[in-house]
Amino acid sequence: MFSVLTRLFHALATMAAMALIAFSLLHLLGDPVENMAGQEVSVEDKERLREAFGLNASVPERFASFVLALVQGDLGRSLQYRRPIADLFAERVPATVELVLVAAIVSIVVGTLLGVWAAAKPDNFLSRLVLTGSVVGVSLPTFATGTLLIYLFAVAVPIFPAFGRGETVDIWGWQTGLLTRSGLMALVLPGATLGLFQLGIVLRLMRAEMLDVLRANFVLFARARGLPERSVVLVHALRSAMLPVVTVAGINLAGLVAYSLITETVFQWPGLGLLFIDAVQFADVPLLAAYMVFVAFVFVTINLAVDLAYRFIDPRIRAGQTMQPG
């Protein structure tokens, strides 16, 4: 129980550090009132605005109110769009979530299956080919994969659209592209681009884990009992190798969120990543600061969830023992 609290405390400390960086970014890079008001506003009015926004308060007081606003979901206003950033994020989140979700399913399911197969049949020609392919996949940058896929399946053989999200349907305020034909078609190439990159990583981690487990004594015993190879691999070994998949899935999800930014640029996919790139080009500092805090929150949540899931699955950690890999 104590270690769970420690983890929570670390997560909060990380968030506080990110909030501090975002705060200094906002308040060291120019005056928010100058940014908002422009040149026509008189000095007295600016002073009144400053007072209204609490900008004349001391720095710790301002930081406290900044954090309070963040906790209440007020992320500030974008300079570029002249709208609340929370609304912008709410519009963009569905696109990124759907892209990451599709890529996660592709990479984790296919990667795990191929990894297990490559470990079970190490001398098979096809499994060696898959393994070599995974090295290429890991080295091939996301944007190069995207470029290649666009050329092959949108230009040379035009099957899928090369950019955009297609038609979306509104479900309780969530704009989904998963329910229309054009939305699904538009998801294929970006989903494959993002998924393929992570697939190689999942495959290699899963294979290494399976190879370790297959050398364990209990697998030897299962074989000695004359069990069919299929049940040795899929029932006995896989159950034990599934544990690290949780960690792998966490790393995978973190990687997918990070690389979705690049995939979104390749396919002009209207998600959070594209919003960030636009904000950099426009020097939209409030949006950048809010994005930083938001991204940190996402990663802290992923890490925490993986950690807690691990505790839940592995009785050794729950009992307070230190984890020994292998």
Partner: peptide, 14 residues
């Protein structure tokens, strides 16, 4: 706790 590429993107962007 953040992927390297995300950090590089954030640092460069900021």
């Amino acid at each position: 706790s953040l992927p390297d590429i995300m950090l590089a993107l954030l640092f460069s962007g900021i």
